[in-house]
Amino acid sequence: MEQLLAVLIDGIIYSAWLFVAAVGLTLIYGVMKIVNVTHGSFYALGAYAAASITGALLAHGMPPYLSYAVLLGSAVLVSVIVAPLIERGILRFMYAKDEVVILLITYALFLILEDVIKLIWGVNPYFIAEPYGLLGSFDIGDLTYPYYNMILVGVAIACGVGLAWMLNHTRTGKLLVAVIHDTEISRAMGINVDRFYLFTFTFGSLLAAIGGAYTAPTVSVVPGLGVEVIVLSFAVVVIGGLGSLPGAALGAVIVGLVRSATIHYLPQAELFVIYLVMAAVLAFRPRGLFSLAEARKI
């Protein structure tokens, strides 16, 4: 019983992390039809920015409780600088190309960004443990959970609810939904699609950076941080259905719970179980659990 509770709590925490890390990917795919490998780079950028800025401010006597805001601020800062640079500078010239070719372009950009990160922050690890330890922890049976994990869950809920609210209740969101459904017609209706692409890419990347920023206090920030996040986010959004927001949430919960259950009951299967679920979903529902029907061809 107690272990079951642990599985559940671990699963929820891991789902929250996965959702924040992956939801931007599905947003970008939905609007721009880009499978964006640089998503992992933004995750790493967010983590590095958060770790270095928060670390520096704490060293200069910033009250520790402000660090939670600084984490967010760092993510915003780094993504509003880098994302528009990539979208306006490179990606927008590539939209006419095939989906797979654009994926390769983002892969090339990912390789470049990996080294940009090393050039800016060097290869030594960054630690900022203060925000993690500051809130204390609670116990369930033998297991200890830092309250910081609840912040991660809160961030995930805020991201999900905020996105859903934006898409359904704001003018921008409604126009965005139009672009998701048919870019060509939206363009013909006078929607400034280019501006939405810039907005979506920046916002999607920001979400990845937030994921990285709030993970930074829990890990040592080292080169290659984003590499695993890329495949994990792919798995999450593919399971849910590329381009679907509820899909990303469902995918995150499935992957989170499945992984947490395997860690507790069958630790040898920890890694491969995620991809097994991904392959199984693709095999039976190639377009994921939430997907739109395809149009007739002739």
């Binding site: 798995a235 593919v238 491969f272 991809y275 991904m278």
Partner: peptide, 12 residues
């Protein structure tokens, strides 16, 4: 993506 998933299963 399906090829990716299967190769990652082997890795895992």
């Amino acid at each position: 993506l399906l090829s990716l998933a299967i190769s990652m299963i082997l890795y895992g």
